[in-house]
């Protein structure tokens, strides 16, 4: 990718994120946009975003692929791996070579099986509150270059602000409810994937793509489309 291209992509990404913040926006769409932007504009191959459910457990709410292999790798990293470590310590955890190290053997094995060479986990934090992590997987080994790291951290910050919102910062239980909303939306999206997968006899990954495409085409939030499919007021 040329430098100009990348800069344009990043600019677009920030503009999109900023737009979503001023208008009425859906948290889940914002996060989906974020992970897709990271994968396109940065030198990484897959991206997943984990949010805390408030009890210390992390749940995957957006990822660049819905394949069960990637979802499982990130889930393992969220249970015992760099993702949960980045969250707990509230700092970036960079693993430049997944093949070199003894920590988190299950996570390393799972990541290696998918051809990942490196991973960077960036905490989503604002002041004293850490709400999740942004996890960037690369096929090559090596550290993420400075530029990309800075960009990823800036994107993570903007996303965090988007999730928490100004007004939500006033009360911690409002933060909680905003997170719960995002996590519950994810439940409905999984259910909607199942509805569509059965109805059209397609894979759950293809079902997600169809839901996402429909949401984009009709300019509706992902969660709203999913809810329509689940309560059967919508069929696509």
């Amino acid at each position: 990718m040329t430098t100009v291209n990348r800069e344009e992509l990043l600019l677009d990404a920030f503009a999109t994120l900023a737009d979503t913040l001023v208008a009425d926006y859906d948290v889940l769409d914002l996060l989906q946009t974020l992970v897709e932007t990271c994968a396109t504009a940065l030198d990484v191959s897959q991206v997943g975003l984990l949010l805390s459910d408030g009890s210390g457990e992390l749940e995957l709410v957006a990822s660049t692929s819905e394949s069960s292999a990637l979802v499982e790798t990130i889930a393992i990293g969220a249970a015992e791996g760099p993702c949960i470590d980045a969250f707990t310590a509230s700092r970036v955890v960079s693993v430049p070579d997944l093949g070199d190290g003894a920590e988190w053997p299950a996570f390393r094995a799972s990541a290696a099986q998918q051809g990942f060479g490196s991973v960077v986990c960036i905490p989503l934090k604002l002041r004293d509150t850490t709400i999740g992590t942004l996890n960037l997987f690369g096929e090559e080994t090596g550290v993420l270059n400075d530029r990309d790291m800075k960009a990823a951290q800036a994107l993570a910050h903007v996303a965090t602000i988007g999730i928490l919102q100004e007004r939500a910062l006033r009360k911690s239980d409002e933060i909680r409810s905003q997170l719960e909303f995002a996590l519950n939306s994810r439940v409905v999206i999984e259910q909607a994937k199942g509805v569509l997968a059965h109805t059209h006899q397609i894979s759950t990954e293809a079902a997600f793509d169809a839901i996402r495409a429909y949401a984009r085409k009709t300019r509706q939030p992902l969660a709203l489309v999913a809810r329509g499919l689940v309560d059967r007021s919508l069929s696509i």
Partner: peptide
């Protein structure tokens, strides 16, 4: 079970919703 299990259970719930026409 794990978070990952839950995803699969939610997806399966969707299958059953479509199969039987019942609510989640």
């Amino acid at each position: 079970g794990s978070r990952f299990s839950r995803r699969v259970i939610h997806q399966a719930t969707g299958f059953v919703i479509a199969q039987l026409g019942i609510d989640p």
